[in-house]
Structure formats: C-alpha cells, structure tokens
Simulated assay, not measured.
Amino acid sequence: MTEQSLTRSPVPTGFNLVLPPGWGKVDLHEEVVNESILTLVDRSIDQLPKDLPRDDVSKVRMELFKQLRKAARKASRANGMVLYLPVERVRGSVVPASFVVSEPINATGAGFHSNQVVNGVAAERGESETVTVDGSTATRIERIVPPPERSEIEFSSRRVEYILPLPGSPFPRWLAVTFSTVGDGKPDSEYSSALVDLFDAVMMTFRWSYE
C-alpha cells in the first residue's frame, strides 16, 4: 500500500491507494524527488540479467534516471504532487502508462457552486460520469489526446481523470488524479482499454486518511 500526505490540508490529511504489482511512486516535492527516482531506478536495475556487463548497467541506469527525471519535471509543471508509474518489466518491456495526483485545487471566484466548477471542467475535458470513490461522489472524465505539435511523441494518449472533492474542507477543494497511456499506439485498442480498467481498479482502492 502506498500513502502520500497532503501538505497543509484540512481533514483529511492524506490518502492511501493500492498500486498494481511492479508500480512505484515519485514524490514530486523538490527536496525529495531525486531520492524517489533513484529508489525506482534501483528497483528496475535489479531486474536486469545478472551477467550484463557493468558498463551496460551504468548506461541503463543513467538513461532510466534521465527518463524518470523528465517525466517528473513534466508532472511537476502540471501541478503534480506525486507521480505513479510502472518500474518493473513485463515480458521485457515497461508498461506505457502512468498517473499523477495533483495538488488540491481551490475554488476561485465568488458565487460559484462547487458543482458548477466541476461540471465546467468536465465539459471542457471530455466525456464525464459520476462515480463513487471512498463512499463519496466524484467525477470521472475520459478523453483521447492527440500528440503535441512539433514533439517526439507519435501516438495519441488515452486519459482518464478523477476529480475528488475533499471531505470536511471549509471551502470547495478537489484532488485530481490523472491517468495517461499510449497503450500499443491505438488508444481504443483492447490493450489500452485493459490499462484503463487497471487504473479504474486502483481508484476503487482510494481512501482518504485522517490523523
């Protein structure tokens, strides 16, 4: 089980969720992000063949650290608090998926009901539905995102976002959990759908934690 604290948050003080086997997390707070990445790098390196030359291991270690650092920077720029991703290989490959928990979102502007804010976000981002997470009503949004222009990314990604209201907050606040996968290059394939199902199953384990 993995746990992450919410800085300066009212009740609840954090959350717990159960990760799939082979997944790990990167704490995106600047003072610990490199330590988190190195822990995942070590887990991945431990899976390499024991007879692999030391120079090759060093190259893999360095490249993996660069890749995870790049992913962490991207998630941090998007207001991410913690990044979850696979680090252990399945049939020789790392599963092409990840999800990010963002810093709590505060309602802005006077006169807006919390449902109006969430509905507005959902309308902008894709198909939405109401779901229950840890006994509370949440919003699930799904969409397909084309690759950015002038980027090295070839394939569209399939994204699923859960917007969870923070219970007990004196003013409207939400936690956003966003999953993304390129799957096998086809966002509507059975493989991509299976990865989405895996993320939905993870979100059903989500629980708020309290002091």
Rank of each mutant, 00 (worst) to 15 (best):
D51Y: 05
S169D: 12
K70M: 10
S36T: 06
S209I: 06
R69K: 13
T137N: 08
V60E: 13
R54D: 15
F99D: 00
E88G: 04
E152N: 11
D56A: 13
V118F: 02
T205I: 03
G14L: 08
K50C: 05
T39M: 06
N16W: 01
E190M: 05
V57S: 01
I105W: 15
R89N: 00
L40M: 13
Q47I: 01
G22L: 06
P167Q: 09
R150D: 13
Q4W: 14
W208S: 05
A138C: 15
N115R: 13
N115T: 15
V26C: 05
A194M: 11
R143Q: 10
F155G: 00
L68P: 03
D184A: 04
L38D: 15
A122T: 04
E127Q: 10
P20A: 04
R61C: 05
E31W: 03
D134I: 11
M81F: 02
R8M: 12
L19R: 07
L175V: 07
M204H: 10
K70S: 13
S98C: 01
V160G: 02
K70A: 13
F65T: 14
P49N: 04
Q47V: 01
D55P: 01
R54C: 02
E103R: 15
P10D: 05
E211S: 14
W208L: 07
R158V: 02
Q116C: 02
D51G: 00
A75N: 10
N79A: 12
F199C: 04
N115M: 07
S98G: 01
I105R: 13
I153M: 09
G120N: 10
T13D: 12
V18T: 15
Q4L: 08
F199T: 02
E124L: 14
V90E: 15
T13E: 13
I163S: 04
D134C: 10
D55Y: 09
V57F: 07
S36H: 13
I144P: 07
D188L: 05
R77T: 11
T181W: 03
L19W: 04
R143A: 11
I163N: 01
Y191P: 00
D46S: 10
L166A: 05
K74R: 09
E31I: 00
V177F: 04
P49V: 02
D200W: 02
L40P: 00
E88P: 02
A123F: 05
G168L: 03
A107T: 05
T2I: 10
S58Y: 08
V202E: 11
N79S: 15
N34T: 10
G111C: 04
L48R: 10
V33A: 09
E152T: 05
G126I: 11
Y210Q: 11
I144K: 11
A201I: 00
S151T: 10
K74Y: 07
Q4R: 13
T178K: 05
E149R: 14
W174A: 09
P165I: 00
N115Y: 14
S209Y: 03
A75C: 10
F171L: 09
P10A: 07
L198K: 11
N34C: 02
R54H: 12
P96W: 04
A97L: 11
A194E: 08
P170Y: 03
N34L: 12
Q47A: 07
E31Y: 03
R91Q: 14
A201D: 09
I153S: 09
G168W: 07
S156I: 03
I45A: 12
P53L: 14
A110C: 02
D55V: 08
P165A: 02
S169K: 00
Y84G: 01
T181M: 04
R150M: 06
P12V: 06
E88S: 11
F99S: 01
